[in-house]
Design a protein around this nucleic acid. Structure first.
Length: 680
DNA sequence: TGGGTCACGGTTTTT
DNA sequence: CCGTGACCCA
């Protein structure tokens, strides 16, 4: 049966599929049949008699994992024990369940999300924004820098504080048996590094490893992969260096650029035949991406015909831009185009506003893909906090979240008192409330009435825990009548939240029906790694950021905001090559029609801004208007001011004034001239 | 405790 | 311009 699938491949795809032992890099351009190739390869390996349980396929998203699993299994005509095909983080989670005790940490850990992480950091007392500290800790972990060495190498005031917080944060996490997303990769790495026997055993077990979207791996994932390949070199990675757009969260393109050097003797297969887009579209994508210097040579060849020309228009303002899109879409819909085949893409969410307004006015049904994630919604997190308390009532973090939700009249003052009291007694908040020994002391501390309220809260948790014993189905049936979250949100008129709670409870019931033996704590860690709820509103026009559109395809794509400052975006950390890759991703989403739109002025942050066209339009040969980049504005020794780095002096003028080398208090940085202003 | 007011800052995002 | 967070007062 597998033979028939092999016949559906082109010769490059077939070469990749039939490569079995030794490192393999599949450079898969956009729309070149990447998923088809690796799923066929996996099925092929299994058809050769390789035990599915000896394979490991790692992806970045759950969506990619489930799509691949489905496609690979469909190719096999016999029932198999399903191969391990999951996200990096899921793999880490499974691994830690088995081995975390090796690091003397509790195997009954709880996975927290980035929101929880920020809150914990904030509670540790910080003067810099908790999001920056959180990001700092994340980059340390992803570059395998321990808290101690972070502290030693801390230079700025920020780094000094951040590294101290990093130390405290790690202590807190261990004390409370918590694990963050980065830990799901870092702790397995540490275990594999420290315990040779586990590393060998694991590597032998996963004798055939496949990694999807390899261009998005960071240093930690790279090191982890090397350890997993300790006993063999059967690693197949698939990726496209031109589609690396997650540098801002640690993705390191050099991993794919230097794969050959790391995995000696690697075979490289390029998939350059594009089955998705017309030649006109690919020409634009190819010509723009060719301006990047750090890339592996690769050129998409269109299998489809020439197609329609790429359309590019610059409007007076964003309203004219949106009105034009609405008009075009209405025309398309009238001619029978399926709205699900149309997408509007933008670089930053702020640009969606005028689109949404116009679509609503013109009654075009649309769905905003990738807004607030389901499990990050406040009401869902409240429910999750109750569930965690159900598993472990001494989870202070969760307790603090919901002790006043629904409103019970317990505020910050009471909580602060409770917390300091618990700390002095070397115990957790829940225990101090329920311990009869502390009753009179606490009662006089917070007042009799408040103490009664606290007691009531513990009774609620108790009720939940009791209900848990009568089985998950009944538990989920009764959960909200015990907590009362729905009626709380109902009274304050937030009906959306009520229906979200209903959706969540419905989903959980479904889950426990299919997995009756699953424990509540397993369920909690499982869903911590899942972001989306089920897709809804099928036949609608999609609007989303370019990042969200990666991996998707549409017949007709409108890209808005091709203006200098918006796309490429203009900030201190802008990496122009990554912006260009983003353009490449956007353009290659389109199958038949691509619109590259812009506006001469836009309203943002309360003021109207004028801007020249994006340099990408120039590179694509789609505009004659002059593009930004004022030359000769700065000379050596000019004093300049930067939003983040403060004052600095120009050391050198590069690229005809487009770029500057600036000394900020001893630290020399290279920045685009647009990001600084003259300080007189 | 919690409602009200003011200042501030404001990419991209998965797990 | 608009959402978030800090802070003040009833």
């Amino acid at each position: 049966m597998i033979k028939q699938y092999l016949q559906n491949l082109n010769s490059e795809q077939l070469t990749a599929v039939e490569h079995i032992d030794g490192p393999l890099l599949i450079l898969a351009g956009a729309g070149s049949g990447k998923t088809k190739t690796i799923t066929t390869r996996l099925a092929y390996l299994i058809s050769l008699g390789i035990d599915p349980s000896n394979t490991l396929t790692l992806t970045f998203t759950n969506k990619a994992a489930s799509e691949m699993r489905q496609r690979a299994i469909a190719m096999l005509d016999f029932n198999i024990y399903p191969p391990l095909l999951c996200t990096f983080h899921k793999f880490g989670l499974l691994f830690l369940k088995f081995h975390l005790a090796k690091l003397n940490r509790s195997p009954n850990f709880v996975v927290i999300d980035s929101d929880d992480k920020k809150k914990i950091i904030k509670n540790l007392g910080v003067s810099f924004p908790s999001s920056s500290i959180s990001h700092y800790i994340s980059s340390c972990k992803n570059s395998i820098i321990s808290p101690d060495s972070a502290k030693t190498s801390a230079n700025s005031e920020f780094e000094k504080e951040a590294s101290e917080i990093y130390i405290k944060y790690e202590e807190y996490m261990i004390k409370n048996s918590l694990v963050d997303f980065d830990d799901l990769l870092l702790l397995p790495y540490k275990i594999l590094l420290d315990f040779d026997d586990i590393a060998s055993e694991t590597s032998k077990k996963y004798a055939y490893i496949t990694v999807d979207e390899y261009q998005d791996t960071n240093q930690l994932q790279f090191e982890l992969l090397k350890l997993l390949c300790k006993e063999h070199s059967n690693i197949c990675v698939v990726g496209d260096d031109d589609q690396s757009i997650y540098g801002f969260r640690g993705a390191d393109v050099t991993n794919i650029l230097s794969f050959e050097k790391t995995f000696y003797g690697a075979k490289i297969v390029k998939l350059e035949s594009n089955y998705r887009s017309t030649k006109q579209i690919l020409d634009i994508a190819n010509i723009v991406i060719a301006n990047n210097t750090d890339r592996l040579d690769k050129q998409l060849k269109s299998i489809k015909g020439n197609g329609a020309a790429v359309s590019s228009t610059r409007f007076e303002d964003e309203r004219a831009e949106s009105a034009y899109i609405a008009k075009e879409i209405k025309k398309l819909l009238k001619n029978g185009t399926n709205p699900a085949d149309i997408a509007v893409l933008f670089r930053i969410n702020a640009l969606s506003r005028s689109i949404e307004e116009e679509f609503t006015k013109e009654r075009i049904a649309f769905k905003f893909v990738g807004g607030t994630m389901f499990y990050e919604r406040a009401e869902i997190k409240d429910l999750l906090a109750y569930l965690r308390l159900c598993v472990n009532e001494n989870d202070d973090f969760s307790l603090k979240r919901v002790i006043n939700r629904p409103k019970r009249g317990i505020g910050k003052t009471t909580l602060d008192k409770l917390e300091t009291f618990a700390t002095t007694q070397k115990t957790q908040i829940y225990d101090t409330i329920s311990n009869p020994l502390f009753e009179s002391q606490l009662s006089s501390m917070v007042g009799k009435k408040t103490f009664g309220l606290l007691k009531e809260f513990t009774v609620t948790i108790q009720k939940l825990q009791d209900k848990k014993l009568s089985g998950m189905i009944e538990f989920w049936h009764e959960i909200d009548s015990i907590i009362g979250l729905k009626s709380f949100f109902n009274t304050i008129g937030e009906d959306d939240r009520v229906s979200n709670i209903d959706e969540f409870i419905g989903m959980a019931k479904e889950y426990f029906k299919t997995n009756p033996e699953c424990e509540l704590d397993e369920f909690l860690n499982e869903i911590a790694l899942v972001s989306e709820s089920e897709e809804q509103n099928y036949g609608d026009v999609s609007i989303m950021t370019i990042h969200s559109a990666k991996g998707l395809e549409f017949e007709i794509v409108f890209v808005v905001g091709l203006d200098d400052g918006f796309f490429p975006i203009n900030t201190a950390t802008t990496n122009i090559e990554e912006e260009r890759r983003l353009f490449y991703v956007a353009a290659t989403r389109a199958k038949t029609n691509l619109y590259l739109l812009g506006a001469k002025s836009r309203f943002l942050h309360g003021e109207r801004k004028h801007m020249p066209p994006s340099r990408f339009l120039k590179e694509a040969g789609l505009t004659d208007e002059p593009i930004a980049i004022g030359g000769g504005k700065y000379t050596k020794n000019d004093l300049v001011k930067h939003k983040i780095f403060g004052f600095g002096r120009v050391v050198e003028v590069l690229r005809k004034g487009e770029k500057l080398k600036i000394n900020f208090q001893g630290q020399v940085r290279e920045l685009l001239a647009d990001f600084v202003e003259k300080a007189v």
